[in-house]
Design a protein around this nucleic acid. Structure first.
Length: 578
RNA sequence: GCACCCUUAGCUCAGGUGGAUAGAGCAACCGCCUUCUAAGCGGUCGGUCAAAGGUUCGAGUCCUUUAGGGUGCGCCA
């Protein structure tokens, strides 16, 4: 509909140019926007105000001229001029009805797939080996996963990349500690508490010189490919990722073992990469380190910023890995778009790494690199979030607490659900609430971690959307009548239909901007419109005429399908009853 | 010191490329369950969009300055 109006106005404007009413070289962007207020129609354009200057006329006059050329047809029922010169368009009911009737026959519910599907690498979650996932991992994990699903839905080839922290000098002490534990309890290896294990390793390292010596030796051996160290390291990776995989399963995150592409993957590429940079004169030695100078980052005096890609001791850095990583994603996967979901502190690092990759020709200009940046997690005091004891809250604890609270809420409701059904409701509601709390926010600002805030089930939350869905399903359980042709009989119905036909625009917008909160906002509005419809438009009551009932069933079905599909794109489950 | 980010209702947050009267949720208060699920619906209350200038028909949105907060800044990741 929006595109239709846009095309209409484009034609009229080029008509004006042909008639010399408008200078041929006028460049304007024809904008059609969704109105906020129903009194302003369903769509509006500010075109008349944009043309005021080039046409040397008053906006109202131009609007009048334009509207005289807009045909009233089966799509547009009415056009009005309002305010300083806005043109308001009212969609015809018949058109809306037809649109939604055919939308119901479309498996994609009217969503237009990507015109040119592309390969997109999405880097998200990225937990560390030998550490448990903490609450602050939830943003990257949940938002990245939603974007992956959305882009896939639109027909793109999505490569999920779990860039785990599986490399670094700390592995010397971890291997030494694992060895010690294996010797002590030769039979079973219990590492349920990775945090405790890490602390123990650190303690030995700090207090036991012999242990520390061994640990340092293991770092060197691991990096030179020693088989024993390698296998010990792999054990640590496996133990950690098995635990994380449980979290992913629980949270319905679409990452699996095959998506793991940790830092270690790029390790063999670092030496040739730096050698290449040196050989081509892009990097040079300074005080023993190898440095790349970037013209895109300058200080006050205009001196390019130096970025170290190899330390004076021969070691490589985070930035070096990121350059290799970008290069690999282009060369190996043919990525056209790379999105890294990481917190805002890494912004400069990423930009510099990508600039170096482009400068060196490792990344063509037409490959988009995006930082899906987000703020840090703060406590209620506005300081970086820590528990009272100074530690972090484990993600698992948050999920447990979410389920406890959901279960408590359920127990106050006496309904006829079986214990199994109750369990699945508790699980879906709790996980949905936790995920939605993150997904529905946009800001790159830091955000405040608060149990109550994260675990509400009222208002703009996933349970609200799940509830709307199960209310609809409940209607269908109680009737054998089938949905029929849609016929608008109430404003609540019309508002819903108008919302339905915007699903495509919203999904595409969320994909383009890598921002799932746009989809959340849409689904919340849709659910709200459905709730109002539900209150004022009875479906199954005896005094509802048969054709109205069939129409309302079709409207309800459409709402249910969009809710289910939309929540599915967010990785949130729907429930038949709750 | 330099660079980047942020500041919207008591609290948590929305406010695509500037648009009409700045919106939700929570909290507070008042209504609505013999009728398709009250995890709901309706209503009231709540704002100097950090401050001051500027750009223009129009600024929460763009530009400049200031205040406050945060983050990063060659040999950690």
């Amino acid at each position: 509909m929006k595109e239709y109006i846009q095309n209409l106005l484009t034609d009229i404007v080029s008509g004006l140019k042909n008639e010399k009413l408008l200078p041929e070289n006028t460049q304007i962007r024809i904008m059609v926007e969704n109105t906020k207020d129903k009194a302003h129609g369903d769509y509006a354009s500010n075109i008349a105000m944009m043309l005021a200057r080039p046409m040397q006329k008053k906006p109202q006059e131009i609007a009048l001229l334009l509207t005289s050329r807009i045909p009233l047809n089966d799509r547009i029922s009415r056009v009005e001029i309002a305010g300083p010169g806005f043109i308001n368009f009212f969609a015809s009911k018949e058109f809306l009805e037809n649109q939604v009737n055919s939308l119901l026959k479309d498996p994609l519910l009217g969503v237009k797939p990507a015109r040119a599907p592309e390969t997109v690498v999405i880097d998200y979650s990225s937990p560390n080996v030998a550490k448990e996932m903490a609450v602050h991992h939830i943003r990257s994990t949940v938002i990245g996963d939603a974007v992956a699903r959305i882009l896939e839905f639109l027909g793109n080839r999505v490569i999920r990349a779990n860039h785990i922290g599986d490399w670094g000098t700390q592995f010397g002490m971890l291997i030494a500690c694992l060895e010690k534990k294996e010797q002590e309890h030769a039979s079973s290896l219990e590492l349920a508490d990775l945090e405790a294990f890490y602390r123990e390793a650190k303690k030995h390292y700090d207090e036991d010189p012999e242990f520390a010596e061994k640990a340092r030796g293991y770092v060197v051996k691991l990096q030179s490919g020693d088989e024993y160290c390698r296998s010990m390291w792999q054990k640590l990776v496996k133990i950690t990722m098995d635990q994380n995989q449980d979290i992913y399963r629980r949270l319905n995150i679409s990452l699996s073992e095959k998506d793991v592409m940790g830092e270690s993957l790029y390790n063999p590429m670092l030496k040739p990469l730096v050698d290449d940079l040196i050989n081509r004169g892009l990097a040079r030695e300074d005080q023993g380190a190898i440095v790349v100078y970037l013209n895109t980052f300058k200080d006050k005096e205009g001196n390019p910023r130096g970025v170290i890609v190899r330390k004076s001791d021969g070691g490589y850095l985070y930035t070096t890995t990121d350059i290799a990583c970008a290069k690999y994603r282009w060369e190996h996967f043919g990525a056209k778009r790379i999105i890294v979901f990481a917190d805002s502190r890494q912004h400069e690092h990423l930009l510099m790494a990508w600039d170096i990759a482009r400068m060196a020709g490792y990344l063509p200009d037409d490959v988009l690199t995006e930082h899906g940046s987000f703020g840090m997690m703060l406590g209620k005091d506005g300081k970086p979030f820590k528990t009272r004891t100074g530690g972090t809250v484990k993600l698992k604890e948050l999920l447990d607490e979410a389920e406890n609270r959901a279960r408590e809420l359920m127990s106050g409701r006496n309904d006829a659900l079986s214990p199994e059904e109750k369990n699945s409701v508790v699980h879906a509601v709790a996980m949905g609430a936790v995920k939605y709390a993150d997904l529905s926010k946009n800001r790159t600002t830091d955000y405040i971690f608060d149990w109550d805030n994260m675990l509400t089930f009222d208002g703009n939350t996933a349970p609200y959307l799940q509830y709307a869905y199960s209310r609809i399903r409940s209607i269908f359980r109680k009737t054998s009548a089938a949905p029929g042709a849609i016929k608008i009989t109430a404003p609540e119905e019309e508002n819903l239909l108008l919302k339905f036909i915007k699903f495509s625009e919203v999904v595409n917008g969320a994909a383009e901007k890598a921002m799932p909160h746009l989809l959340c906002a849409y689904l919340y509005e849709l659910a709200g419109l459905f709730m109002k419809f539900y209150e004022s438009c009875p479906v199954l009551k005896s005094d509802v005429p048969e054709d109205v009932r069939q129409s309302r069933l079709a409207i309800a079905e459409c709402a249910a399908r969009i809710l289910k599909t939309g929540l599915g794109l967010l990785g949130i489950e729907t429930l038949e009853r709750m």
